[in-house]
Design a binder for these strands. Sequence first.
RNA 1: GCCGGAGUAGCUCAGUUGGUUGAGAGCACGCGUCUCAUAAGCGCGGGGUCGGCGGUUCGAGUCCGCCCUCCGGCACCA
Length: 659
Amino acid sequence: MKRFFLTTAIDYVNSRPHLGTAYEKVCADVIARYKRLCGFETRFLMGNDEHSQNVFKKASEEGLDPLKYCDQMEQEFRRTWKRLDVSFDDFIRTTEPRHRAGVTEITNRIHAAGDIYEGVYEGWYCVGCEEFKQEKDLVDGNCPLHPTLKPEWIKEKNYFFRLSKYQQPLLDHFAAHPEFLQPDVRRNEILRLIEGGLVDISVSRAGQSWGIPLPFDPESVVYVWFDALINYASAVGLGGDQEMFARWWPADLHVIGKDITRFHAVIWPAMLMSAGLKLPQQIFGHGFMTMNGQRMSKTLGTIVDPIVAADRLGHDPLRLYLVKEVTFGGDGDFSWERYDERYNVDLANNLGNLVNRVTAMAHRYRNGRVVPAGETSSRLRDLPNEVATCYRRAMDAFAIHEAAASVFRLIDATNLHITETAPWTLAKDPASADRLTQVLFDAAEAIRLAAVLLEPIMPSSSREILRRVGVSPDALLFERDGRWRSDGERVLLQEGPLWPRKELTTVSENPLPPGAPGAHPAPAPSTAAPGTAPGTAAPSTPAPGAAPAGGDRISIDDFMKVELRVAKVLAAERVPKSNRLLKLQVDVGTEQRTLVAGIAEAYEPEALIGKTVVVVFNLKPAKLMGVESNGMVLAASPDGGKPTVVSFETPPPPGTRVR
RNA sequence: GCCGGAGUAGCUCAGUUGGUUGAGAGCACGCGUCUCAUAAGCGCGGGGUCGGCGGUUCGAGUCCGCCCUCCGGCACCA
């Protein structure tokens, strides 16, 4: 039997799943379900990434044993995926023994291949800064902050993977397998990156306990990224169940977010090459979901909880939105208004209403029983199989949005078919009895086919529709069920609307703040200034249910940890070769400090001199473009806009505490 | 700044290797209409200098050049 093994990225467990993570799982699930429909023995893997220092920290903060914390998060993730009907076959955690076995195996193989060397972390070191310096940070070979001190060339023990060795093999692989990384934008980006040269990467961390020990040096643990990638292989038995591994490896598809393509399309294949293992067939880097055009962020309140979204209209409507409204591979936007709109149009008005009217007519005119009794009307003669073909072509190319849209062409055609044949007119003339029967049969058959095609996207709704049109929803197979059929009697069930229409007047149920676009039932667009399309200046809109739970707020003590002070800018200049950074000399009352601010796009250095601003006084120093920054200037940074520094109507003296 | 992508109706986008597109779909909006149906369905309509300027061509949204704007990737976003 043909097999298909696909994976999603494993998720960091330091925060709960949001709509962005859900998006990836749903899209992968659509592909998995489609492959099953096509008769593939399918294995769909998901999981959690637990060996992160952030996880360790987060657990400690909550006073939990890290593993206990991860146990809780696993339940959280599983609950979410279950709610969205994500049909994973396996769920791996990187703290499981089988994963440790896989990591150990592959690390040993790479080591044996001579591609891991106990090296040194080498680099320039400025004693003045107590920091490593990159070559490019140095000016004339000297630290820009301490030009009188000669930087030292320092070495520190570490383990390295010879990634550089795989530049050419990777380029060859990309050339031989154009489909290896999709979509093309991602592929080109990565190709340029590889062409630009690869440097060996550190694969170990010393002095840490949270992680998998390096087999040949238990004092070190495997670096979290190296560790995480291996989950795909350890989940199917690498280092353990040989038979299983032989059966499922290599993976057919890794579905990942575009932010981590580099790890999956460069490091991971190189690791596999080194270990003498096959490379995955394909990697697909999907885009991100935004909320009202803004990136999902906790502080902006633009996080959408997938469970809340599923609770609003149902998990299938949410899945349909994610799949149909977003070009798979590109970024997509979610808004509650659009979500409601798509629900009404696609599901209530078109598909749901179609099922309802056809089952109602079948009952009114034929006691629910329909059989083929003549010729199929022209509207439905060729289109259904065309749609099925188009759908498959799209699905096979992972154009899942196109596949979804194509099904609605069939649904629209069926509504047209009913208008054109007017069963209610046929019913008045006994001579048209057979014609009426056939018209109803055709409609029922079209609905059946649409439901089969929708199964990967809306599994439970699909089954419900199939049940209503008198077809067994079990064990669907594309070869048999995915094209027009005119066999047998169908007994239709009339059970009322599947998706009740959501009236637009209920927008007030949307948890939109007053003043947000869409919060007014009857806006007057004609009075809007040209170019100010509603929504462009949308303030952040909290997700429903994301009402300030105590957990997201900090205590006054937390806030008091941040020492904000009034500061006066004494000098300002551009950081060389930087287009965003300004180097500022400020008076913070007790002393003068140098700090770097990313506001060069909005402020000329001269304009800042003498200005009174607010700085974070007790921030750890950081070096940016080689300049050490001791503090941070507070500024408002609108998405896509230029920053504005916080200032005063009547400037207080430098050093004044701000709280 | 470098590399890549994109700028087409109010919104989201199709437009294949230049010519049956003297510019299309869906949503929204307006009008009409059937009545099986969830005030749903179906039909008609308004509305666009196809980012700007120049060029190649018998002919360009579709090719070339320059410019503008937006997005993404990388490099500095404390």
